[in-house]
Amino acid sequence: MKPADNIHELFKKAAMNTNPRMDDTVLDKVLIAHEKAKNTRPALAEPALRRTIMKSPITKLAAAAVIIAVVVLGLFELITTENKSGVVWAQVAKNVEASPSVIFRARGTGSRDPNDDWPNAYRIFWRSAALDRADWYRNGQIHRTIYTNLDTKTLIGVLHDHKMYSKEALSDERIQQAREGKGWSDPQTLINLALSLEHRALGQKTINGVLCEGIEATGPDGGTGRLWVGVETGYPVLAEIEGMKGGIRTTGTLDQFRWNVDLLAEGIEPEIPAGYDPL
């Protein structure tokens, strides 16, 4: 018999049991830690701003969207200057802030994220103050849907690849955190960030047939965000972010924007397909 067989046999025989009372004690500590963590960070994974953007853009779309508005709002200081281009940046800032909802696509590259198989993976977001839905796609197939409705206090998750779903109630505390952690729709956060950014004009170019004007902003951590806004509409058309994290370049792209959409009318609550089992 090889040494490995002997030892392997011994590992198998070497049984381990636990004291049930201590099991409960340790589990209580673990569950308390879990509960505390839920109460100290938004359960809806709304991240902190640029630090997280650069960490993994595709999974941090709420924060990535901040960049769009930040870049726009960063131009508040240009409001009083003469603008020779077709874009009225002050109006763009107002448009973004006033838009009750937005739909967009997000793609990104980064490290250690299984969703980073650019360009085959992307997410579609529907977002308003109360509603949030993200559909995750890989190779053209939807494999996850996460939906939250802060008004009805509902969280729905659908694992299309496993044909399973989950419906849960959101606690008031988590709802409050989600509202506060909206990121891009928090004007105060945006203005604070905007004031810390420098930016430069990129001129005009046509993106998907739309004449756009762009600016580029660089954060103190070296991360860069570029925003392209439709000259005619005054709404963002394309946002690109890039930065370095741990020596690895990460990028994120937000496009296919639809602003001022009535999400209730769109009926974005996911329907659970027949044959799916509760998780």
Partner: peptide, 8 residues
Amino acid sequence: PEQWAILS
């Protein structure tokens, strides 16, 4: 506290 793991 009391022992959690019981070894064979």
